[in-house]
Design a protein around this nucleic acid. Structure first.
Lengths: 284, 284
DNA sequence: CGTTACTTTGAATATAGTCAAGCAGTGTGG
DNA sequence: CCACACTGCTTGACTATATTCAAAGTAACG
């Protein structure tokens, strides 16, 4: 499809740090970002965590980098990807505010993926050693970290399900809804937003060809369930998008019109809220 | 494809326990099974973990069960699956000796999947509370658990890559190799083994139709790279299977013979050892 | 021995991929 | 400011891969 790596510039760490206005966060702020309650036993923890800024296009970490920090997104939009057996890029996720980057690296103590900034970003560095300290200090925090990892597992598994059993149309529909939900969580509109990634990156993420994504967006537009203008999306019928199973085959569709001869298949079940705020997730 | 749930019998826990000969394992044995070194600070831990036996076809846990235990496979073969949006079964993994079942349930404190025994099994129950105790007692153990979860994430991600970017032929090829490697780890032959799961389960796991699996196995057999006899597989050319990208299209293939007009595409790179023993994984 | 479940194989079909061309927005340099 | 190239996106036509449907074969089970 596309080459695995374009030209990746390694982040100028020290540089960024010195210029970054020396912003540091407390453990409390960390927990807030992660959407977990500050455990009792960390009330008097005064650790500080450094912020680093990345410009759009800059690399946060590369595949195979030794694990020294995890990265917590404070603001901005990123893309995590790995390189598969065949040296093709494989987009894994689009981290944004509140997402923890790098937990896949704990296993071998080296990153198994790479992350680049799609927009200017502010990222908090969490040295892995600090994470271990926090786990040692607070039993509850340790539990929470397990939960976060477990959640990541469930999310990735959800994507696995999407890959395996959905039509390309359903994939794109759910992708748009998911993005809407995620923006909503950040306080933006879930109906009108700008995609931060290219069609290519979407296609890769969904495991379909770029032309397929393009075509499907056009069809959705024609059907009146969304509006597409470059990367600006307006979702008109979110229910349609998240429950779509498949559209009538192309031949049953009067070309260039929204008139359909055979019915559109829609799933009745409520979709699994994979990225929604999870109240039970916060520790009481 | 296939109905999500056939008829699942809940395990007769108490019953099994009473009949099971009351086998209990030590923390040390637990670590051995998990292929990690017993941490120093758990040397004098005398916790005991109960074994439970399951007959082929019995359910170990159901989706949405409250998390009380994790399950460590001592022997036997199982199948973990979830139910997707469209109520279809989605096979996630085929746990065997040494695999830890249920870490996806930590997130919501409820299982996000279900596991059934494909053969008679001996399973060690690890109450989640005990796991937390061990983490509290031993910092190193806590770290190791993180590693295990991280590893699971990487494995699942590998499958995601398989789903997205491989042809059906490559999927089946890699599946066979992977099974070989896993059997090898258990001390069996990596070349000759019995698949414990049905074609249906394989197809589901790989995200292809059952007929496709069947056809591809036949083609491999005809090409002389494997031998298939029901569920007994003999791998003749493992390199071929793990590096196959795609076979020549059907029309370039003289029917029913192993003669090919155009070349078979083979990947040069070494495959990622996703299930191989990882020496660096053991704690020093 | 008949019923059932699982598997294989063939033929037709559909979905999505590839190839190719054209369009639109962006940026560069004359 | 315009011409030019460049990149990303869209659209069409064709094709390949894999699915679906159908039928028949094989093993397993009571």
């Amino acid at each position: 499809m596309q080459p695995a790596t374009t030209h990746l510039t390694r982040p100028a760490f020290q540089h960024s740090v010195n210029r970054s206005g020396e912003l540091w966060s407390s453990t409390h702020e960390l927990c807030d970002l992660l959407r977990i309650c500050l455990p009792q036993d960390l009330r008097d923890d005064h650790s500080r965590y450094q912020h680093v800024r990345f410009k759009a296009g800059q690399t946060v970490h590369l595949n195979n980098d030794a694990l020294s920090n995890l990265f917590l997104v404070n603001c901005g939009f990123l893309k995590s990807s790995m390189t598969d057996d065949l040296d093709k890029e494989l987009v894994l996720s689009f981290p944004m505010k509140g997402d923890l980057i790098g937990i896949d690296s704990i296993h071998r103590q080296h990153h198994q993926s790479q992350t680049v900034a799609l927009s200017d970003c502010d990222i908090i560095l969490i040295p892995y050693s600090s994470l271990q300290d926090l786990c040692k200090k607070s039993e509850q925090f340790g539990h929470t970290i397990l939960q976060i990892m477990s959640r990541e597992l469930v999310r990735e598994r959800y994507m696995l399900g999407v890959q395996r059993s959905l039509s390309a149309e359903a994939k794109v529909g759910r992708f748009l809804c998911m993005m809407g939900e995620r923006y909503a969580q950040l306080g933006y509109s879930s109906r009108r937003f700008n995609l931060r990634m290219s069609r290519n990156e979407i296609a890769n993420y969904l495991g379909v060809a770029i032309e397929t994504v393009s075509r499907i967006l056009s069809v959705f537009h024609r059907l009146g369930v969304i509006t597409v203008n470059q990367r600006e999306i307006v979702i008109i019928d979110a229910g349609f998008l998240s429950n779509l199973v498949k559209l009538p085959s192309a031949r049953d569709r009067i070309p260039k019109q929204a008139v359909l001869k055979s019915p559109i298949m829609i799933n009745q079940k409520m979709p699994f809220p994979i990225y929604q705020q999870q109240p039970e997730f916060a520790l009481s």
